[in-house]
């Protein structure tokens, strides 16, 4: 690896310590996912977040039993607000509570932010290709928001694969950005059901669609791929086989169905 980003800066804020966060907003993102915004009382001490990082969330049952899961941040913590979007997993232990049990005004414990690799830094000069499957768009959304909030002129392009239109996270915001921003392009892939009038039949992302939807080959683009393992394996493999530099492709994967 020759192009490691600078590591997230050390600070007095210890990423191993648990911090209390107040849930200030929570709303359905899709029929199965919920966006949760929380405020940190100790926001002043929070180190600068880097887009793409994650936090750990800890729940505590009445008898003291605790459960911890990792969630990518969807935003870059402006004003001490952290945002995550949680997909409810079948038979999950933590995600059903976060999606259906948690209320505004409740508190969560969080740890982090964590991660110095699957991140985008504002000083990054290269064009960026983002490729998301389903809930894998969350850390990429943090990058898109950070990019739009700053002045980095490099183009961003997102290829977002979802089962059906209503399963897309952040749809309105993404489509508005694609409409108004000269620095952001958006491509959709619908795997099960497409909107009416959509020019492509629903189906899994294939080599043709992939080639047509990414920054041109030969560009120095930095590519971030995030989704379930089969999706990430397919995309990363296809990009490498089409001649892209593996060192310019970063991946993050969601584990199995029992992760949450």
């Amino acid at each position: 690896m020759t192009d490691l980003p600078a590591s997230a800066a050390r600070s007095t804020w210890n990423a191993s310590d648990w911090h209390e966060a107040l849930v200030v907003e929570a709303y359905a993102e899709t029929p199965t996912a919920r966006t949760i915004r929380m405020r940190l009382p100790e926001a002043a001490a929070l180190p600068a977040l880097v887009a793409g990082q994650h936090i750990d969330v800890r729940l505590t049952a009445p008898d003291g039993y605790t459960a911890v899961r990792s969630y990518s941040l969807a935003s870059a913590a402006t004003g001490g607000i952290l945002e995550i979007t949680v997909e409810e997993l079948t038979d999950g232990e933590v995600s059903p509570y976060l999606v259906r049990g948690l209320d505004v005004g409740d508190r969560l414990e969080i740890r982090g932010p964590i991660g110095g690799w699957f991140v985008w830094l504002d000083e990054e000069p290269a064009p960026v290709q983002l490729i998301a499957g389903g809930s894998g768009v969350v850390p990429l959304m943090a990058m898109i928001r950070a990019h739009e909030a700053g002045t980095n002129p490099s183009p961003f392009r997102l290829l977002y694969s979802v089962r059906s239109p209503e399963m897309a996270y952040y749809r309105a915001e993404l489509e508005e950005l694609a409409r108004v921003s000269p620095r952001f392009d958006l491509d959709w892939v619908y795997t099960r059901r497409a909107p009416s009038g959509w020019p492509h039949a629903p189906g899994r992302l294939d080599l043709t669609r992939l080639a047509a939807s990414v920054q041109p080959l030969g560009s120095t683009a930095l590519t971030y791929v995030c989704g379930a393992t089969p999706f990430v394996e397919f995309v990363a493999d296809a990009l490498v086989r089409s001649g892209r530099d593996p060192a310019r492709i970063r991946t993050e994967r969601y584990g199995g169905a029992e992760g949450g």
Binding site: W117, F118, D237, A247, T251
Partner: peptide, 14 residues
């Protein structure tokens, strides 16, 4: 927490 599947985590293409 325990899982019975085998999640994959890696930093780039395989």
């Amino acid at each position: 927490h325990l899982v019975t599947d085998f999640p994959v985590l890696s930093i780039g293409p395989t």
